[in-house]
Simulated assay, not measured.
Amino acid sequence: MGEALGRSHEIALTQGELDEARLSHQDSWVTFQTFEKARRAPGDVDADLLLVHGYGDYGGKWVANAAEFVRRGYRVVALDLPGHGRSSGLHVFVPSCNILTRALASVVEDIYPPNKQLFLMGHSLGGFLAINYALQYPPAQKGGKSESDSHSHSHSLLTPQRPHLAGVYALSPMLGISPETRPPWVVETVARMLASLIGHVPLIRSDGSLKTEDARVIAETLSDIRVYQGALRIGTGLALLSGVESINRDVSKLNTPLRICHGDADRVTLCDASRQFVARADNTRGDKSLRIMHDVNHVMLADRPTPLSREVVNDAIAWMDQYCGRV
């Protein structure tokens, strides 16, 4: 499509797509949108950018911030994670973070020819998933093999049909949970006892106002039917905690360029966890960096451009420009 960016609620499965799913006995799907220039110009980057939203949100929340990336030449893809937005699944029930990571991989394989350059950009849970994808699907090299095929760890999910992952830009990534958000240990203990029986049941009420002090953003989030407003489901909460533990164990294996942007006033995910993650990562190539934004809370990209979101988008473009064309 052209540079005009549409609203996410205009997306709908056609009857033909529904019939195809029924005939193939596949009752699950991942919804995504793509945005790109109708005509490319000299100097445009030749790369794709997959945007990954956070917990309870959906891909359409990114649309307002996609225009600058499209103008730079990126083909922008915004997906709805399983159990979110218009993708299938019980609303925000995530029994395993790897299910979400595999969803990213399925979108990549669906829309990308092999070996095309790709960047991932994610917020919060989406930032975690973008990094986790880089760990699970190491960068593809010529011939379709990954840099770590010869010594891949046991849970790597490898496929030759993937592009070269050029870099990950993570906003407020879920690498550590703030004490203001994490439930008391007693609640976690009870949740673990109940998970196998009623993991889908909502248990822990979250306070959306912890994410931002912007009253407009809070009001619009509460009125948006595509944003999950319920309590955190037992199984989802435990899956997120398990994912955080796992990704921090594997930090030394990350061989993809990484840029983390985190606010030091974040009340949802820990800024210190991002500091520690970058400090522990292998940075012999100088491709891991961290930007701390003073007095900034969790939400950096709202549903419309703001001075903060423009600053973040410009930082992301400047960082990705360093790696465009390197394969």
Rank of each mutant, 00 (worst) to 15 (best):
R304E: 01
L135K: 02
Q141T: 13
S172D: 08
E147N: 07
H53W: 11
Y137W: 10
H164M: 07
A273Q: 05
P173T: 05
V63K: 07
G6I: 12
E10M: 11
A215T: 13
D303K: 15
E180L: 15
I204A: 15
A134N: 03
G126C: 05
A166V: 14
H53C: 05
P257N: 14
H151L: 07
A318F: 00
G83R: 06
G122Q: 05
E109C: 10
M174N: 07
G286N: 02
S152I: 09
S8N: 08
T256K: 09
P257M: 14
C324P: 04
A38N: 03
D80G: 04
P179M: 12
A318H: 00
H84C: 15
G263N: 04
G144Y: 12
K37E: 10
V76R: 09
A215F: 03
P138E: 00
Y323E: 09
S88Q: 06
S148Y: 08
V251Y: 02
R205H: 10
M121F: 13
F93S: 02
V108G: 02
S146Y: 13
I225H: 10
H164W: 13
W319T: 05
A191W: 07
R182H: 06
I99R: 07
W62H: 07
Q161Y: 05
T221C: 04
G199Q: 10
E188F: 02
I260W: 07
L254D: 00
A170G: 02
H151V: 05
A64P: 01
L81F: 08
T269L: 09
H164F: 13
I198L: 10
A318M: 00
S124D: 06
I177M: 12
L120N: 05
E109L: 06
A265L: 06
D282Y: 01
G263H: 02
P138L: 12
G143V: 11
N115D: 09
V186I: 13
G43S: 11
N132S: 11
D287Y: 09
S106T: 11
E213I: 03
G144C: 14
I177H: 02
R86G: 10
G6T: 11
A103C: 00
L118P: 01
H53Q: 06
P42N: 13
F93M: 04
G122C: 04
Y169R: 10
G54H: 14
Y133Q: 09
D214L: 08
A105N: 07
P42T: 14
W29E: 04
C97Q: 09
R310K: 14
Y58G: 01
L135T: 00
V299T: 12
G2C: 05
T256C: 15
G85C: 12
V251C: 03
E180A: 13
R39W: 03
D224V: 03
E3S: 04
S154F: 15
D295S: 13
S146L: 14
W185E: 03
I292Y: 03
Y228A: 03
G286V: 06
H53G: 04
T189R: 07
T236Y: 08
I225C: 09
K211I: 13
G237I: 05
A170C: 03
P202V: 09
R249G: 01
M320E: 00
V190C: 08
D282Q: 04
H151E: 07
E245T: 12
V190E: 01
T181W: 12
G126I: 11
P307Y: 10
N255V: 01
G127S: 02
G143P: 01
G325R: 11
H200Q: 14
A279C: 01
A134I: 10
V94S: 01
L120H: 08
V278D: 01
Q15K: 09
